[in-house]
């Protein structure tokens, strides 16, 4: 059985690498887009008027209250159907996956950013203003570097959730890594071996994100 597994692994390496690259691409895009949107939403809920804060609150509560798989199906079927009706085009399965995971990430990051900004003492922003910095300069030079340091540990957790969330995308026909593993396991009837291999690969992927988070944490620790 071990020999069957290693032989299959060798012959399937190009396909496994291809689908792993797919998983990495989708994860990276979702994390980057989700983080960018989340930071903006966090800023809006920390500094916005009550209408803005109310709208962001509704968005975050709705997104956090819906399971990841339901979000994926909603974008793939419902949003695509609406797009087709209204705009005459549809999103590819991969784009739907990125949109769903980005929405998921944005709600998480939004709350992290809001919490981190509000945790900083008001004196920080006032000191920035006192030396003549404009609002965006205060945010960029004073608030964000300190807030990012606060956000990083939970951001790493959220990002690893996104990587794990990509395994659900095979349900909307995205050829990600885990479906390739399942295909090989089903063909060779070597389920334990291939699932064990997938466990190691996902651990390494998420461990890399943790290392990146630790590196960024060190970098921002001077603030």
């Amino acid at each position: 059985m071990i020999e069957d597994f290693s032989n299959t692994l060798v012959t399937a390496t190009p396909f496994l690498l291809g689908s792993l690259w797919f998983t990495i691409t989708i994860s990276a895009m979702s994390i980057v887009i989700g983080t960018a949107i989340g930071l903006l939403l966090g800023l809006a809920s920390a500094y916005g008027g009550w209408v803005t804060r109310f709208l962001v609150r509704i968005y975050v509560d709705i997104v956090r209250g819906i399971p990841g798989l339901v979000k994926i199906f909603t974008v793939f079927y419902l949003v695509n159907a609406l797009l087709s009706e209204v705009a005459g085009f549809t999103l590819s399965a991969m784009a739907c996956g990125v949109v769903a995971l980005s929405i998921h990430a944005s709600a998480q990051v939004s709350e992290m950013a809001r919490g981190a900004i509000q945790a900083l003492s008001k004196g920080q922003a006032e000191a920035g203003k006192a030396i003549g910095l404009r609002f965006w300069q205060v945010q960029f030079y004073v608030i964000y570097p300190q807030a990012i340091r606060q956000i990083l540990p939970t951001w790493v957790t959220s990002s690893t959730e996104i990587v794990k969330g990509t395994t659900l995308l095979s349900l909307i026909s995205v050829p990600e890594f885990f479906i390739t593993i399942r295909e090989l396991a089903a063909r060779e009837f070597l389920y334990i071996q291939f699932y064990g291999f997938a466990m190691i690969v996902y651990f390494l992927l998420n461990f890399s994100i943790e290392l990146l988070g630790a590196h960024l944490e060190r970098r921002y620790s001077r603030y």
Binding site: P14, F15, T180, E183, A186, R187, F189
Partner: peptide, 14 residues
């Protein structure tokens, strides 16, 4: 599908 032999599965050539 792609995970049920012999109905629909991925062969050695992917």
């Amino acid at each position: 599908g792609s995970t049920n032999v012999p109905w629909h599965f991925v062969d050695e050539k992917n």
